[in-house]
Write a protein that binds this DNA or RNA. Structure first.
Lengths: 203, 203
DNA sequence: GTCTATAGGCAGATAGAC
DNA sequence: GTCTATCTGCCTATAGAC
């Protein structure tokens, strides 16, 4: 969800990343071209190759920026919210914001194309998932300590379940059900997971 | 799960579907070509166009066959198994079998490429998801009746959560964690969902 | 049904002028 | 940094012979 490039003053490289990011999140890495970006940016393909020698380098930069922005958002949640359910709700909100632009999670859609991607991109995608699982594990562990999550389950398994559930909800919702469906699926996931300690589900 | 084309005697059309199906499930619809299939089949691209005029028609046939095969598998579960958890375990097993060949669910990977697909394929993908949700809803409703699933949640929401969770688990697992991760995520989902009526989780 | 041959387009990428 | 021009290769698709 994190804000993409700010106001008006942004270099060609940054604007390229903004456009490429959107194209990948909507259409996938194998379904956009340098020509698409060049047209939208009003420059030539050759100029694009000056900033990003090949598609692989562009992909690397895309993931690196997305990953850093997502990590920032997670730190923001830790800073501003207390309580397991509040943090998890905010986490779901991150995904909702992405889906609002008819986009899929960048690393989620790249995971679908995983077999066709260069090694450097593959490794960075894995790191994105690991970041998310690590953060979720701290939140789940907190939840087990404060009694809002059942203490019998393995926090790592619960974290995987949450990540997978939300990535899948985005994937399916873009074809079938849209934002409303994503949100009901996400809410159901959290409701099923958390024994309402103090938070009251809205229905 | 669903057996692909049987023994030795299969026409060109059927063998084309077998190969195309695998290529799509592994690489995606936008990352395979008629040339890939022709080479593997030992025929020319022109022959392929005789059987399937364009990629859209091939895609339609792919989804139709996959959907029918999946529906058969669901009927098989209903025929052979009783008990909510047993049916749900078998459902997860269907997905595990797909993942074993490093494949993603056909309609899951197509959902990632949704924006780039022809209308006919889009509609068929949605129908696949609806089939699954309808079946899951009957199982969840059964589970609420027999006490193995909490009766307070909406069966439709729980069905979405299950479908989304498994599609997402496949998506992520192919990049990170593989079959083992898919299975632990799937088990965690079912364990969280079902209040162990009689089935004992393996840990 | 399967082939040869080919069309026409677009992909990613590079050389070299400004 | 950005351009023009161009290369090479692959893509989907078609015509027409066998």
């Amino acid at each position: 969800m994190p804000s993409r490039t700010h106001g008006s003053k942004a270099g060609t490289a940054e604007r390229t990343l903004d456009i490429a990011e959107r194209l990948v999140q909507v259409r996938g890495f194998n379904a956009f071209s340098y020509a698409d970006i060049a047209t939208e940016l009003g420059i030539t393909k050759a100029t694009l190759h000056y900033h990003f020698p090949g598609k692989a380098e562009l992909g690397d930069a895309l993931i690196a920026r997305y990953r850093a922005r997502f990590a920032d958002a997670l730190r923001g949640i830790d800073r501003e919210l207390v309580g397991t359910r509040a943090k998890l709700d905010a986490y779901v909100g991150l995904y909702s914001a992405v889906l609002q632009g008819d986009r899929m999670c960048l690393c989620g859609i790249l995971a679908a194309e995983y077999e066709t991607l260069p090694t450097s991109m593959r490794e960075a995608i894995i790191e994105f998932f690991e970041d998310n699982e690590a953060w979720l594990t701290t939140v789940v562990t907190l939840g087990q300590a404060d009694g809002s999550i059942s203490p019998t389950a393995d926090p790592a398994h619960l974290s995987q379940m949450i990540l997978d559930g939300l990535e899948g909800a985005m994937l399916v919702a873009r074809a079938h059900g849209g934002l409303a469906r994503f949100q009901s699926s996400g809410r159901q996931l959290l409701d099923t997971l958390t024994v309402s300690a103090s938070t009251t589900p809205e229905r």
